[in-house]
Amino acid sequence: MRAVLVRQPGGPDALEVVELPVPVPGAGQVQIRAEAFGVGQPDVLIRRGVYKWMPPLPANPGNDVAGRISALGSGVEGLALGQKVLLSARDLSQRGGCYADYVVAPADAVHALPDHVELQAAVCLSNYQVAYALLHECRHPRAPASALVIGAAGGVGTALVQLAKLAGMTVIGTVSTEEKAAFTRANGADHVIFYRSEDVVARTRELTDGEGVGLVLDHVCGPEFTSYLGALGKWGTLLSYNAFAGLPEENLMAAMRDHLDICPAIRCFSFHIYDHDRDGRRALMRSVIEALSRNAIKPAISAVLKLDEVRKAHTLLEQGSALGKIIMIP
C-alpha cells in the first residue's frame, strides 16, 4: 500500500509517497480502507518538525481519514465490515499516521458514520469539532448573539461561520479578496469586512449599530490582536485559538483596562485541552456528525487532490488561498 512519510522535516518536498506492507489489525483494532484524507495545519507542523506534539521520525503527518472498515481484529464488537467510519489522530496515542491507503486503529478510536454521510464531507469534521468547542465550550459570560470571525474563508473559519449561524448568531467575517467575500457570504455570513482596506474594529461597530459583538474569534494574533477588544460589546470575549502572526506586543491587561466599561474577557484556546478528556472530545465530534447527518452543516471543500499529490496539497494550504478545506482521495 501507499503511505506518506517525512524522514527529514522541511517543505512540501519532504513528503515522500512510499510503499509499505498493509497493516493487519490486532485484538481490539480495525483496519480502515481510506477513501478521504483531511489536510490541515497540524499536518504541516509535523512535516516541518515543529509540532509541539511531534510523533517520532520517520512520521506519517496525516491526522484525519475517512473510509470503510475492511478488516476486524479479534474481540471487536459494534462495528461491521464495510461500515463508514471517521478517524482523527486526536483519538490516537500520538498524532499523525493517517496518510495511507489502509490505517489500523483501536476500535474505540473510530467514529461510526451514518451510511448516507459522504466521506469527503466527514473528513472535514475535525475543523467543526474545533469550531464547536470554540463556540460552545469556552464558557462565555453571556451567550453571544453575534460573532466576528477573523479569516472567515479558511477551514476552521468556514466551520465557525456555519456553526455560529446554526446557533442563531449574527456573523461578521473578515476576508482579503472579493472571491473570498462572495464565498463567505454564500457560506452564511451576514456581513464581510475587507481587512486589508477597511478598519475592522470601526466597521464592526458600524455594522452592529455601535454595540460591538459578543465574540471575536481570532487565529492570527500578532500586532492587531489587542485592537479587537474595541470590537467587543458588553461582556464580550476575545478568543485566540492560534497565533500565526506571533504574539501581541502590547500589555494585554492594560489594553483590557482601557475597555473596563464592557468588562471584556480574553481566552486562549487549544484543542489539546481535550487530550486527556476522551468523553468531552468524542462528544464534540458526535455533535458535529449529527449536524452533518441532518444537513445542518455543509463542509466547504476547496480542492480534492490525489494522495500522490500530497506535496501540492500542502503547498496550496500554505499559500492561504484555499476557500474551505483541502482534502485528498486515494
Rank of each mutant, 00 (worst) to 15 (best):
residue 3 A to E: 08
residue 6 V to Y: 00
residue 7 R to K: 15
residue 8 Q to F: 15
residue 10 G to A: 14
residue 13 D to Q: 15
residue 13 D to A: 15
residue 16 E to R: 13
residue 20 L to E: 15
residue 21 P to H: 09
residue 23 P to F: 01
residue 30 V to M: 05
residue 39 V to P: 01
residue 42 P to D: 08
residue 50 V to A: 08
residue 50 V to E: 10
residue 52 K to Q: 15
residue 53 W to M: 15
residue 55 P to D: 09
residue 61 P to R: 12
residue 66 A to P: 14
residue 68 R to M: 08
residue 75 G to D: 01
residue 78 G to V: 00
residue 78 G to A: 02
residue 79 L to M: 04
residue 87 L to H: 08
residue 88 S to E: 04
residue 90 R to D: 10
residue 91 D to F: 15
residue 92 L to F: 10
residue 92 L to C: 14
residue 93 S to Y: 11
residue 95 R to Y: 12
residue 101 D to N: 05
residue 101 D to M: 03
residue 103 V to M: 02
residue 105 A to M: 01
residue 106 P to Y: 07
residue 114 P to V: 07
residue 114 P to G: 12
residue 114 P to M: 11
residue 116 H to D: 14
residue 119 L to K: 09
residue 121 A to P: 05
residue 123 V to L: 03
residue 123 V to A: 02
residue 124 C to F: 03
residue 125 L to D: 00
residue 126 S to Q: 10
residue 126 S to Y: 08
residue 132 Y to W: 10
residue 139 R to M: 02
residue 139 R to N: 07
residue 145 A to V: 12
residue 145 A to N: 14
residue 146 S to H: 08
residue 146 S to P: 11
residue 150 I to G: 09
residue 152 A to C: 10
residue 154 G to S: 11
residue 161 V to L: 04
residue 162 Q to D: 09
residue 166 L to G: 09
residue 166 L to M: 08
residue 169 M to V: 06
residue 169 M to S: 06
residue 170 T to I: 05
residue 170 T to R: 14
residue 172 I to P: 00
residue 173 G to R: 07
residue 175 V to T: 03
residue 178 E to R: 08
residue 180 K to M: 03
residue 182 A to G: 00
residue 184 T to W: 02
residue 184 T to R: 00
residue 187 N to T: 02
residue 194 F to R: 02
residue 195 Y to D: 02
residue 197 S to Y: 05
residue 199 D to R: 04
residue 201 V to L: 10
residue 202 A to S: 14
residue 210 G to P: 02
residue 211 E to R: 14
residue 213 V to C: 00
residue 215 L to Y: 05
residue 218 D to G: 09
residue 218 D to N: 12
residue 218 D to R: 03
residue 219 H to A: 14
residue 220 V to K: 07
residue 222 G to H: 09
residue 227 S to G: 13
residue 230 G to W: 06
residue 231 A to M: 03
residue 233 G to I: 02
residue 234 K to I: 13
residue 235 W to S: 15
residue 236 G to L: 04
residue 240 S to I: 00
residue 244 F to G: 12
residue 245 A to W: 08
residue 247 L to E: 10
residue 247 L to G: 04
residue 247 L to V: 08
residue 251 N to A: 04
residue 253 M to E: 09
residue 254 A to V: 08
residue 254 A to C: 06
residue 255 A to P: 06
residue 255 A to N: 07
residue 257 R to A: 09
residue 261 D to N: 13
residue 263 C to I: 08
residue 265 A to G: 14
residue 271 F to R: 01
residue 276 H to K: 13
residue 276 H to N: 13
residue 282 R to G: 11
residue 283 A to L: 14
residue 285 M to R: 07
residue 285 M to V: 07
residue 285 M to H: 04
residue 286 R to M: 00
residue 287 S to K: 12
residue 290 E to M: 02
residue 291 A to T: 03
residue 293 S to L: 03
residue 294 R to E: 11
residue 295 N to T: 07
residue 300 A to C: 09
residue 308 D to Y: 08
residue 310 V to H: 13
residue 311 R to C: 13
residue 311 R to P: 07
residue 311 R to E: 12
residue 312 K to W: 15
residue 316 L to T: 12
residue 317 L to K: 10
residue 322 A to C: 10
residue 325 K to H: 08
residue 325 K to N: 11
